[in-house]
Amino acid sequence: MTEPGAEGAARDAGARRSRIGSTALVVAALATGVAITSQAPDTDARQRPFVRVGVMGEPVDGRTFQGAVVAVRGARRIARSGKTRDTGGVWVIVRARAVARDKPTSIDHASVRDARGRTFLATMRINQPLVAGGYVMQPGISVEGDIVFEVPQASAARLTLRLADSSDVRMDAAIEIPIASDGPTVDRWLAEPSALPVEDARVVE
């Protein structure tokens, strides 16, 4: 014997509404989750360094040290420790001054970024006077020295220097200082035939 049609239909309609409602809730929850995770920063963004931006000539606080850019030079050839090195691009030599804050500190990350966002680490073709293990700074003692980079000619006119006390800059302080020059200056650097000397770091009195 079949059930009265009206009651059965009403019960079926109710069950269908319930199923549609549950499915809609699940879809809404999933969509909300996807929306949240797509907006949340990825690991690289979450672990990015705390960058303090400065200008040439002014000291910038890098948490464990203070750094400043004193001058920028360039050349086709450099001389260091009795050897001459040439390049297919341009040597960019940044004269920097730095002082440790309250414990022995070395600048273990030095890079320049060009206008296209490409990063060039300090060269390893010479023993660097100030960075990459070249000098451990003692607190309160200002030291000045060259940081040497090798970059393509097209990148040399617009660079941003980044310095940090650790080679791993994740979630730590880093200082950034634009060191822009211009095309004619870079051409002048490249036209000079003699090798530019890169000297040892020295204490600033």
Binding site: D86, G89, F120, L121, T123, M124, V151, P152
Partner: peptide
């Protein structure tokens, strides 16, 4: 070019 060890290469500098 100078027989030094090549342990670091840079973008766009062949």
């Amino acid at each position: 070019r100078d027989k030094a060890s090549a342990n670091l290469l840079h973008p766009d500098l062949g």
